[in-house]
Write a protein that binds this DNA or RNA. Structure first.
Length: 561
RNA sequence: CGGGGAUUGGCGCAACUGGCUAGCGCGCAGCGUUUGGGACGCUGAGGUUGCAGGUUCGAAUCCUGUAUCCCCGACCA
């Protein structure tokens, strides 16, 4: 490709809105352009990289036995409703209506479509496992896109789906995808941490995310030196016993002229934070009021809570709702004597003796509150959010670390989450109809590309890993030379970006080459010829060397193999 | 969804409390001189200041509405 003909240019300036390095560099180097919030055009250079990433993914994913196909972008809403997935995705789901009034959703993921497709072939156990995948545009109406390509509303995803006779069979494919994803990350020069994760809107129980540590990440992963790794949404920790052997004292009311915060309670009663009961009131998408209670030094993890009560969405109750619906008082909420609310307790409260907290009446607190004796709960479980330095649940010795990360890909064990509501059956060996066990596997191409830039750049520009660079060689021609070399490299099937501009200074060409980040830079000039050949420099190196033109092709090909 | 900021040639920005023909840099086009780390000179093209309404002799500037973009927050009562 001749640079002079390339559509899309580098620019010296870029909007100050682009604060994330990958966003800024991709804009500046002419790989992407923004259309609207969370929607980006991939320019020719950017698309080249996408194609290479796709190619790696194809090669590795097909090793799991997956076969590529493609389904439509518009999914009949009815199918989503069958599996109740329209509610799970909620506002993030884009909807369109055709001229006949038929409702569709713009595909956000394709479990229901793929299952519907598989059902059309009435599979028997002999056909299973079925392992299919596609690359396609996905639409998610994210509340707040951010970080350039890191969080967008429209993106290409490789999404794979597998269908099995049972979980044991799924696990074989699951492991193959696990290995494939590790290989993909390796070829893209990404350092991934695999974490246990929440299944979220996809459904099912077990899943893993492939995360790349980055300060610009929106996810937080919890890790331990013993090997434990989980997404914060899922991570657990050891809840140390505080005072379970203490004798239960009598419950009593005391005057409490204090503010509404936990700290106010600590200051007034002169007791530890952990002995206070923290009360948080939520309302879910079906209008239920939920009182989440937890030990005072812990925080409520909304994802865990949502899963425990099987809600799709949660929001905080307003002060008015707390007063009018629960007949309580913000800042003085208590599980003792409260009505018309689902009480969900963190299991940390079971062994907490003689706790203190509000009374549902302003400026009156209760002391010596005891679980089971003074209040009843509807659900008890783990709703606590893991924090740094909490004790690892696996080795029970080391302190946990929290790190920001970006999700590169994920694999889901989704079980019967779709087969159940959609009658996704297969014919078993004994002739009976049984539900298929499903898995699903995703990688976002644009995000993968962005993480690569995020982890491979310097102050001058991008430094592409060799397998996904838009071109293999960036040839800079000075002094009117280069045409013959360009032709020769092309004839050797080397992918060349040839900076053939005649009216641009050498410095500008070097700066552009650094910005674009192709791994090998060649310079042909009078000076290089006087030195005996062609200047060869790796983007990742400071030093260059002169290579005899006879050896150039082998030097390049050996770098790439 | 709540709060804050922004919107002016392709890009980055300026034009103070209303006042002359809306400027500057980059980029772009032409000519010439340059050519190893973002060269220089001259000439030139390109804007109904996001949109709609209002106030005024006069609006990029003030007011109202609206759209879009960015940032922060969306939890501990």
């Amino acid at each position: 490709m001749r640079y002079s003909q390339l559509f899309g240019k580098t620019s010296k300036t870029v909007s100050k809105d682009a604060t994330v390095a990958s966003h800024r560099l991709l804009l500046q180097a002419g790989f992407i352009r923004q259309l609207s919030a969370g929607r980006y055009t991939f320019l020719p250079l950017g698309l080249k990289v996408c194609r290479k990433i796709e190619s790696i993914i194809r090669q590795e994913v097909e090793k799991t036995g997956a076969q590529e196909l493609i389904v439509p972008t518009l999914h009949p809403l009815e199918l989503w409703q069958q599996a109740n997935r329209d509610k799970k995705f909620g506002a993030a789901m884009m909807r369109v209506t055709d001229r006949n009034g038929a409702e569709f959703t713009l595909g956000a993921t394709a479990e229901v479509i793929m299952l519907d497709l598989v059902k059309q072939f009435a599979p028997s156990y002999k056909d299973l496992p079925i392992n299919i995948y596609q690359f396609s545009q996905k639409f998610r109406d994210e509340a707040r896109p951010s970080g350039g390509l890191l969080r967008v509303r429209e993106f290409v995803m490789k999404d794979g789906y597998s269908f099995h006779v049972d979980e044991a069979d799924l696990k074989i494919t699951y492991q193959k995808y696990w290995d494939a994803y590790l290989e993909i990350a390796k070829r893209m020069d990404l350092n991934v941490t695999i974490v246990e994760s929440d299944n979220g809107a996809i459904g099912g129980s077990v899943s893993h995310e492939f995360m790349v540590e980055s300060t610009v990440g929106e996810d937080t992963i919890v890790t331990c030196s013993c090997g434990y790794a989980a997404n914060l949404e899922k991570a657990t920790f050891v809840k140390e016993d505080k005072n379970s052997s203490e004798a239960e004292a009598d419950l009593s009311e005391v005057k409490a002229p204090r503010g509404n915060t936990m700290e106010d309670g600590v200051a007034l009663h002169q007791k530890p934070l952990w002995q206070q009961i923290k009360d948080v009131v939520f309302v879910d998408d079906s209008g239920r009021f939920i009182l989440a209670i937890i030990r005072g030094d812990f925080m409520v993890n909304e994802t865990k809570l949502k899963n425990l009560i099987q809600a799709n969405e949660l929001r905080h109750a307003t002060d008015e709702e707390i007063r009018n619906k629960l007949h309580s008082e913000p800042g003085f909420i208590s599980p003792v004597g409260i009505k018309d609310v689902l009480i969900v307790a963190d299991d940390s409260l079971k062994n907490l003796k003689n706790a203190y907290g509000g009374s549902n009446k302003k400026n009156i607190d209760l002391i010596n509150i005891n679980f089971g004796r003074d209040y009843q709960t509807d659900i008890v479980g783990d709703i606590a959010e893991t924090q740094v330095d909490y004790l690892c649940p696996q080795c029970k010795k080391e302190k946990l670390k929290l790190v920001k990360a970006v999700e590169f890909g994920n694999i889901f064990n989704i079980g019967f989450a779709y087969s159940d509501p959609m009658d996704g059956n297969f014919i078993a060996q004994d002739g009976t109809s049984q539900k298929m066990y499903m898995g699903s596997y995703g990688i976002g191409i644009g995000r993968a590309l962005a993480i690569d830039v995020e982890t491979h750049h310097d102050e001058k520009g991008i430094i592409w890993p060799k397998e996904i660079a838009p071109y293999q060689v960036h040839l800079i021609a000075l002094d009117g030379l280069g045409e013959d070399l360009y032709q020769e490299l092309l004839s050797q099937n080397i992918e060349v970006l040839f900076d053939d501009r005649s009216s641009v200074s050498a410095g500008a060409k070097f700066a552009d080459a650094d910005l674009i980040g192709i791994p090998i830079r060649l310079v042909i000039s009078k000076r290089s010829q006087e030195s005996g050949g062609i200047e060869f420099k790796l983007r990742s190196d400071k030093e260059s060397k002169i290579i005899d033109s006879k050896n150039l092709v082998s030097e390049i090909t050996s770098f790439y193999t």
